[in-house]
Design a protein around this nucleic acid. Structure first.
Length: 331
DNA sequence: TATCCGGCTTTTAAGAAGGT
DNA sequence: ACCTTCTTAAAAGCCGGATA
């Protein structure tokens, strides 16, 4: 390991490579291991004084970016690493309270907040894991032989999509929503963000069609397997196969289709086939429990989803809170 | 006319090579 | 040795037009 730095527990390292959300790299403290080897691209240091936990929080706040901004060469920013000379890095100035008591109190509070965030994060992770198990239980293990089975094309009507010509810009400043696969979330069945809108004329002059509210949108090509129930009447790209109406409980069916599409999508992985044909979807077999059973299952899954979402929301609040606190704590 | 296909663009990530 | 710049690769996303 010659040519590497040996960092000991409690010491800090600055990583000059930037990434999303970290325009000027990051400074972290080695906490989890007694020691570690770092390539020479890192700038390593230990503290002479100050509360270590407090300084860790300071570096988490990214307030020091202003200083790095002054010394990093602009041209270097277009690829990989920042150009930050080691000498100048150590010359940067940081304004911190001298009183270590104060530092200790602030640090303790932030550590408590961090613990809370960690707990919340693992709650979210676990809930997501349970969700996968729950869906398996509902759609595989707990199926009853008495339930009817049917192919989708016998109980649903379909509609495809298209893209209005991008050359005609006037098509794209209308009122009608138009979505592509990137607009729907992998894990939520009712979380579509409509980012583009088209005109009536655009629909008339292209292959896309207006789908009614409640349509089950299934991504069949790019991003195979995403499923969502559309919240308003809108159009989709041609990488969708949409179910405009289906007998039974829409939410139950959407959940079941999402589950089966995920299995279908796994089959396409690693092959040259990048999509699932409309025929595969149309001939997909689905269970049809009695209506009240469908509703019960759908309600349960929806409730579980909103439970997870609430946990995610809470996590977000804690994260924002921490960010805001860090912003206010340091000048 | 609905569906499918393949090529193209954009984004992200590394690696190799070159300069001082 | 230490950066910067040039290249390539891989993944993700988009869309026009062929096809049955």
């Amino acid at each position: 390991m010659s040519g590497y730095y040996l960092l000991k527990n409690g010491e800090f390292a600055y990583n000059k490579s930037y990434s999303v959300g970290y325009d000027f790299g990051s400074i972290k403290r080695l906490d989890r291991y007694p020691m570690g080897a770092l390539s020479t691209l890192y700038i390593c240091f230990a503290l002479k004084r100050h509360e270590s936990d407090f300084i860790k929080a300071y570096f988490d706040s990214l307030k020091w970016y202003r200083e790095i901004y002054m010394i990093s060469a602009e041209g270097a920013r277009n690829h990989g690493l920042l150009n930050v000379p080691t000498e100048e890095f150590f010359d940067t100035k940081h304004y911190l309270p001298e009183n270590t008591d104060e530092q200790r109190k602030i640090a303790d509070f932030l550590i408590a907040l961090d613990r809370r965030i960690e707990t919340q994060q693992s709650l979210v992770d676990n809930l997501k894991k349970y969700k996968r198990g729950l869906h398996k239980l509902v759609f595989i293990k707990n199926r009853k032989p008495s339930w009817e089975k049917s192919a989708l094309h016998d109980i649903a009507s379909f509609c495809g999509g298209g893209t209005p010509s991008k050359d005609v810009s006037s098509y794209w400043d209308g009122e009608i929503g138009w979505i592509s696969s990137s607009d729907i979330q992998e894990e939520w069945i009712d979380d579509i963000s409509v980012t583009r809108r088209i005109t009536k004329k655009a629909i008339d002059n292209s292959a896309t069609k207006l789908c009614p509210e409640g349509t089950i949108a299934i991504v069949s090509r790019v991003g195979v397997g995403k499923v969502a129930i559309i919240p308003e009447s809108l159009c989709t790209s041609q990488d969708f196969t949409n179910i405009t109406s289906i007998t039974g409980n829409t939410h139950y069916m959407a959940y079941q289709i999402a589950f089966r599409m995920k299995l279908e999508a796994m089959k396409t992985q690693g092959t040259s086939i990048k999509g699932v044909t409309a025929d595969t979807i149309k001939s997909m077999g689905v269970d049809i429990p009695p209506l009240e059973e469908q509703k019960k299952i759908a309600d349960m899954l929806t409730a579980f989803d909103s439970y997870i979402k609430r946990a995610v929301y809470e996590l977000d609040i804690f994260l924002t809170m921490k960010k805001a606190l860090l912003q206010q704590l340091f000048i």
